[in-house]
Design a protein around this nucleic acid. Structure first.
Lengths: 240, 240
DNA sequence: CCAAAAGTGTTAAAGTTACACCCATGT
DNA sequence: ACATGGGTGTAACTTTAACACTTTTGG
């Protein structure tokens, strides 16, 4: 913000907010992607993208992220935090993406600086809802198709961040689990995040006696082996 | 980036890059601030700011940060990394700042989204250099004057990040130290960062036998006590 | 009684914390 | 000799990592 240069060489890029919305379906880590247009493998543009949009006037970045999230999931109070800004001048240069952008936005797009957000949600039927003009669906992060812009890179970077968070702030992971869960379910999410198996007993010591994990008097039903206990996550007891 | 909204409610905010450039002068942690205009306590606007400017067309965010840094320090290869984007619609609303902005940029400023960077540099004479039209000088982070926009907040948040980094990636701290330093100097920087005293012996164990710290055959001269050994930091030996 | 997953404890190693004395130098 | 900071070790405790058997349930 120095005077002498601003009127000469500066310009105003578009600013967008994109959300990496992660969930766990009991088996794999998934990311919510939105599709613009028909599902056609021979399409001229990459129709899969991170959910996001340009920033509105007078809208805070965090508010935009929350709004995108609410639009898609139909519910509020999800965990969401800013991850990082991506602003390479070439990130919108893929001809497929240019084609789509000019179609969608109806004007020449010089450049878009995007602020990426990381969000953790519970996968349920509501989040599979289809919205007018665009679908949103869950995709395994381990088998991502080609995505628009640098969205694959953004997801990859966010997943590294998530791995760190799962160790340093393990309570965040409950955002992805149902209100009642077994020790196995909890361990599986962590394994998906860190990419390798975790020792059952050591993992128990790490997490199961945190004050915010409370055992319920409920057990699995109709399983052909010893029934696992259910636990719940108690928000009020999180201490860092 | 969804088509239906972009043409209706979206707009293009200005995008800037601001650098929190931190250094250590042997006594305190300092931040490099630039002053626009005369040093006048009764000035109508806040003349002290983080060094930064609007983004140029075709300029990557990281490149902008590096450029700002090079302009001020006159040297390259400083440690610099993106910290976080700040985009509250009200961050440019302080009347003092509005006055300055309209003066400096010669146009109505609706809003500026800034990408804040964290940088660690060595304080020396070159970094005290004055540039045409604006001064830059080091200020103690513990006694910051009033700053423009939300720059005080940005600095506060960056300092929290630095505290984390000094523990998790202690090698970064050498960016702020001279090529040769004593164990005391090293400890003092860490104490400034974490805000309390550190036990001499425990700190030694923590840092002094990392492979990237190499003892030199040089000792302090002319001190009225046992001379302290000098060490240097060996870049190639950093392992995380 | 078999298959399948649940649940539970110990030991060794590494790391962390708290704490105190002698050494080298200049005045 | 004294004032100043330099430099070093140990013991208690905590954390981490590796590792295996018994329990419960349904078929």
């Amino acid at each position: 913000m120095q005077a002498e240069n601003t009127t000469l060489n500066s310009f105003d890029p578009h600013v967008s907010v994109d959300c990496v919305i992660l969930g766990y379906d009991g088996e794999s880590l998934k990311v919510l992607l939105s599709r613009q247009g028909e599902e056609d493998p021979n399409s001229q543009y990459n129709s899969l993208k991170l959910p996001g949009r340009l920033l509105y006037a007078d809208e805070d970045l965090d508010d935009a992220a929350n709004d995108i999230l609410n639009q898609l999931t139909g519910s509020q109070n999800h965990y969401v935090r800013q991850f990082r800004a991506f602003g390479s001048p070439t990130r919108t240069n893929n001809p497929k993406d240019v084609l789509w952008l000019e179609n969608a936005i109806k004007q020449k797009i010089g450049r878009i600086v995007t602020i990426a957000y990381l969000s953790l949600v519970r996968i349920n039927n509501r989040t599979h809802r289809t919205f007018a003009g665009h679908d949103a669906a869950w995709y395994k992060v381990s088998e991502l198709p080609e995505l628009a812009f640098d969205h694959s890179t953004i997801i990859r970077e966010v997943l590294k961040e998530l791995e760190m968070l799962s160790v340093q702030q393990p309570h965040l992971i409950f955002e992805m689990l149902p209100p009642k869960f077994t020790a196995l379910q909890l361990r599986r999410v962590h394994e998906q995040i860190c990419g390798h198996e975790l020792d059952v007993r050591n993992f128990s010591k790490f997490i199961m006696n945190k004050p915010y994990i409370v055992p319920l008097d409920e057990w699995e039903q109709n399983v052909s082996h010893r029934a696992a206990r259910f636990y719940k996550f108690q928000v009020g007891k999180v201490k860092l």
